[in-house]
Design a protein around this nucleic acid. Sequence first.
DNA 1: ACTGCAATCGTTATCGGTTACGTTTCCAGG
DNA 2: CCTGGAAACGTAACCGATAACGATTGCAGT
Lengths: 340, 340
Amino acid sequence: MIEVNAPVTMSDVARAAGVSTATVSRVVNGHYGVSARTVAQVRSAIEQLGYESSLVATSLRRSRTNVLGLVAHSFQSYTAEVLKGVMKALSRSGFDLIIYANSDLYGSYSEGWEQRHLTRLSGTLTDGCIVVTPWGDFRTRTPVVAIDPVRGSTAPSVISDNLTGATTAVEHLLGLGHRRIGFIAGRDSLASAWSREEGYRAALTAAGVPVDPTLIGRGDFNPESATPLARVLLQRPDPPSAIFAASDGMALKVLEVARELGFSVPGDLSVVGFDNIPESALTQPGLTTVDQSMYQLGYEAARMLKSLVTGEWDEPSQIVLPTSLVVRDSTAPPKSAARP
Amino acid sequence: MIEVNAPVTMSDVARAAGVSTATVSRVVNGHYGVSARTVAQVRSAIEQLGYESSLVATSLRRSRTNVLGLVAHSFQSYTAEVLKGVMKALSRSGFDLIIYANSDLYGSYSEGWEQRHLTRLSGTLTDGCIVVTPWGDFRTRTPVVAIDPVRGSTAPSVISDNLTGATTAVEHLLGLGHRRIGFIAGRDSLASAWSREEGYRAALTAAGVPVDPTLIGRGDFNPESATPLARVLLQRPDPPSAIFAASDGMALKVLEVARELGFSVPGDLSVVGFDNIPESALTQPGLTTVDQSMYQLGYEAARMLKSLVTGEWDEPSQIVLPTSLVVRDSTAPPKSAARP
DNA sequence: ACTGCAATCGTTATCGGTTACGTTTCCAGG
DNA sequence: CCTGGAAACGTAACCGATAACGATTGCAGT
């Protein structure tokens, strides 16, 4: 049954136990200076009334709350994976997690809200935050760890080795014989997008293949942003024989467009993604991609934040996680392996 | 740059603007009774100092916070889909969302924590909560909407038409000629699990096929719970020709086990799931399943909670959403269509 | 100039806890 | 019996904001 009114406060408990709220507080927090008899009385009163301390009131008065926050700008597969890693790291650690999501997911991308919510939370509700958004930096009074930070950020962060990953991916395509390789970039404010493009350029240059700017589409990591770009690339009179997309979400959209335009994959077109989200293993054909463990990203970020909060962090403030190429069915040698 | 210390409070603003905190509060909340000149002063002070009101302090004092909560016991695809629907419904509604996740995701399933967190949040931080957990009911002072509630719950809730959905699924298998149909049940505390099993039994009975208890495995909606059950069913000397799993997560595990044991799907074994999570469309073969829009579930729950909070709800307290069968590639007639 | 009513703004109690500090109780030691 | 000091507990200030209430001011009407 739901009882709509059950505002049991600490003073209710105090009254029931015949003591002051101060004593109840001491019992609840296991502080020193309460006789065993009184503790028992208070405990039983708490039990009877079903009292739980208010998170809000506690947060307001205390500096430490043992609650960490996660602020994300959207909830794609990427974020969900990160979330699992974070929860794993926090498991049995004594920290709880609050995820703050704004209600404008599909609305206007108001750049300011992360900062707004961060300041509203920090210093009160949460002891620290993990942010995973395409914007930054953030001013807070509590530690912040960024996952995939903006370019040039010096804040504590966790990031994949995007440069190596992207280089490997393009080298894989080059190794298959591809020379005209399209690229769909991510949101350029992010360090990851930048590094992945760097890797693309570096691999081409190292192989003596000139970088053709008209083969580069400017996406923003949002899957939908890739659709028109893929259409443009594939409807050219001279379409590329392979496309490297800076994220799996975008790569999957490339597959969609390819199917729609009658390209067979990997026959007519090879596609490589980046991220290795769960869907990439399941799609048909399986997507060749660069694995960055988003789970691990979340796990490390949470571990880092935890120690930052407790003040026992001594490792460098930027963690770089390795990536690895996962070859599936979306890549093959081009039909005409040789071309100027 | 991150400034670690920026505790700008309302009284800082008040001091800077040369007014009282009450006036600042009035300006912030757009209340009546402040001259245009004062508003301008306060606004500029807020701007200069970068002030944001503390969510916690506001929550403590106010009855309404315009923040809704979501309490979930795990974060599988199911929850992620629900989440998207919730966010969509809350988009541009003036409500923010806080997701409370305990850190024991993989640890002991301590049944009490949802109640604990619910009381810690309700009446202070949040105006109401959506709960999606296999336990209930909950005592709170603010409205609660349950998604897929426990059996016998009378609380406001949103649920799919599980009975019809399950019946249709089994009728589909019967129509293909299957007679030995296995079933992997969900957590029996949930109304949905109950209804789906009911549908399974009803369809069989209506077709004159006796229900064989040894063909029923007792899972709990957790994908992992299905693996050993599927193994048992398929390693029998007389395995069923089809398996209906009460959730897609479990059905996908059945596919995994089938592959492992050398069953071809749908050649040797037909598999049907329930939920239609995104993965089901991508897996190979595509999973035939009963579509319940988890997105819609979340959307409706949020819509309901919103009106409950504002006190303008007049529809029934239980919403039932339709389901529909999605036939993909995991079902086909059995090899020997006729059997006693 | 005087009254009266709005408009404007400050004072203060309050939300539910926490904690510094003060007070009382109790017992050991002199 | 008195004193000292630690243990046990209450008092009250405080965290940051809100809102009821009171006080002040300005201006119109007479």
